[in-house]
Design a protein around this nucleic acid. Structure first.
Lengths: 216, 216
DNA sequence: CCCGAACCGTAACGTACGGTACGGTATAGC
DNA sequence: GCTATACCGTACCGTACGTTACGGTTCGGG
């Protein structure tokens, strides 16, 4: 079996098995991912690890890409869009995003990526950004623009509107979790937060609420 | 000379000198802060470092606290509050917060704190949270409540309102910077962003805009 | 059946760094 | 002047971990 990612790499089933072990170690505690630990837990030799991934950074990079390839979801391209489906889609995005950033996997991955971004070596931060913040932006902006085309939303710059949506949804959640705050987000709480965020987004960007010319 | 912090520790001038060196090393690159490097750059012996700070974690903790003690600012307690001064104060908070989180010092500190939060050891994440996210919350909430008391703002929960403000101001800035995105925030851009964030906050929470009872 | 490729397990190497020890120097108190 | 304290500089120790090397096993192709 071959699992192909969008990076031109082809991963065998055995290799993805190893990467899942690496992922699990990452979640268990940032620095518990040692080459020896991965080899032992995956029942493979270190020689094989180095053959497949080059060095520790290569393994880390492959692990991050592997996780990214797992959470990638299809783009939304709706044919007809009314207020209800737009709202529903936005809430879907918000729920999904909150679920992702509050998952232990995402937290662990972001932590290691943040650490590496400080050390300059490799580019884990860039990979995480590309598959997180920027990926969701590229998927959401077409929806926002469709909403504008349908006369439901009003904004000048889709990027700007998206960043505001991002802030309304995420608020302080990600930084608190990354810094170790024990913040429990139940599915119900996530649903509530998502709904409230979308409400506020509509308050700010609903076409009817577009700020009128102030004079008169 | 003695610089006292609110932690009961008293730091001599020489000690703060050492901590500034540690801070500089932290900014230069996450893992370049080794005990040997600090000792050499600060022209002090490692023995002294261990005597003063116990171990590496102690030095790191002292460094984080030291930086925190430098950025701490007074609380706002206004006597009379009108719409203009409220807006001005909120913009001040926003500008200050954006300036802090986009500073290289804050980025470096948050990176090391995030790393340590993953490893369980020490409590750098908690310290950074207490002096960042939570400190600003405690300073801002009285202002929001004063705004509500003055009939300028409408919200049920000050914490909730603050978290929304936090999201509107910070958006994706902090996570992007932590992950290594080269995001330049000029003072002018910060001022613009702050103003826009406060505008949106007022759109959401201005007393006149409070959602009326839907029935009728 | 034989060969080579791929892989496992383990041992070994090199190094970087946290932590300790120690000799040398200055300064303060007596 | 004398001793104690605090400190600098450097050498040293132990360890953890990345990386390499190697012997043994399995398996597919000729």
């Amino acid at each position: 079996m071959q699992t192909t990612t969008d990076n031109g790499e082809a991963l065998t089933a055995r290799q993805t098995e190893v990467l899942d072990v690496a992922l699990r170690l990452l979640v268990e505690g940032g620095d518990s991912l040692t080459m020896t630990a991965v080899a032992r837990r995956a029942s493979c030799s270190k020689e094989t690890l180095y053959k497949w991934f080059g060095d520790r950074d290569g393994l880390l990079t492959a692990t991050v890409r592997w996780q990214a390839s797992k959470v990638r979801t299809g783009n939304y391209d709706r044919q007809q869009l009314d207020a209800a489906t737009l709202r529903e889609s936005l809430e879907g995005f918000a729920v999904n995003w909150l679920s992702v950033i509050s998952s232990s996997t995402s937290i662990a991955l972001n932590r290691v990526a943040v650490s590496h971004a400080g050390s300059g070596k490799s580019n884990l931060g860039g990979i995480v950004l590309a598959n997180g913040r920027f990926a969701i932006g590229e998927r959401l902006k077409p929806l926002l623009e469709a909403g504008r085309a349908a006369g439901l939303l009003a904004f000048d710059d889709a990027e700007e509107a998206f960043r505001t949506f991002f802030g309304l949804v995420g608020r302080d959640v990600q930084i608190r979790l990354l810094l170790g705050d024990t913040l429990k987000l139940s599915p119900a709480a996530i649903a509530d937060d998502a709904k409230r965020a979308v409400d506020r987004f509509f308050t700010l960007f609903e076409a009817a609420n577009r700020p009128k010319i102030r004079s008169l």
